[in-house]
């Protein structure tokens, strides 16, 4: 019988992992979209995040018994690592014309929305932030985790996370006001 994330995680078997996937897939998928501005890319990134979670399950200590902060961190790391390595991810985002949303599978399934343009603008700024601010933004603003959770998963004091977000927020507001 499924219990907390920590208990499922500790069990480490396939059924427990499947339960964790079912529990958090939607949240990670939405977070992945906020990291990529593409539902297609979000699908691949979500899959890769859970695959990575499965591989590293024995190495991980969950924060507050919840797998979600760590899954968000993995998703961010994957997107960032790939971005740093090849730079193609960012180019792919830029390649998408603002007035022509990429017609991916998910967007055929659910109603298309016009969020992508604004999100790409935000991601442009997020991508240019210093690493510490970017991580805090991804977890707290894009992922909507609490600053306490972000602090634990990042290994810093909560006040540091608040400070990083405060600085980043100013830049994001500036983007919004353009």
């Amino acid at each position: 019988m499924p219990d907390t994330d920590a208990e499922l995680w500790a069990r480490g078997d396939k059924a427990s992992f499947a339960a964790l996937f079912d529990r958090h897939a939607e949240a990670v998928w939405n977070h992945a979209y906020r990291l990529t501005a593409s539902w297609s890319l979000a699908e691949d990134l979500t899959s890769a995040t859970f695959l990575a979670a499965w591989r590293r399950r024995s190495d991980i200590t969950l924060v507050r018994d919840s797998a979600l902060p760590w899954l968000y961190t993995v998703a961010g790391n994957l997107a960032r690592t790939e971005f740093r390595r090849l730079g193609r991810f960012r180019r792919a985002l830029r390649r998408v014309p603002d007035d022509d949303v990429v017609p991916d599978h998910a967007e055929r399934v659910i109603a298309a929305v016009d969020d992508d343009r604004a999100l790409r603008r935000v991601l442009d700024v997020v991508g240019s932030l210093p690493k510490a601010e970017r991580e805090a933004v991804e977890l707290c603003l894009l992922g909507e985790l609490s600053t306490a959770e972000a602090a634990q998963v990042l290994g810093v004091a909560e006040v540091s996370v608040r400070s990083r977000i405060s600085r980043a927020r100013a830049r994001l507001r500036a983007v919004e006001e353009r």
């Binding site: 992992f17 998928w29 933004v137």
Partner: peptide, 29 residues
């Protein structure tokens, strides 16, 4: 607790379509 503010224009979360969930689930699990 929630962050004090949200990112400007942050899109709302969407329900995960069942076929997307299923496709990812097959791939992952």
């Amino acid at each position: 607790s929630q962050p004090e503010t949200i990112v400007p224009d942050l899109p709302p979360r969407r329900p995960l379509p069942p076929d997307v969930r299923e496709r990812m689930r097959r791939r992952v699990v």
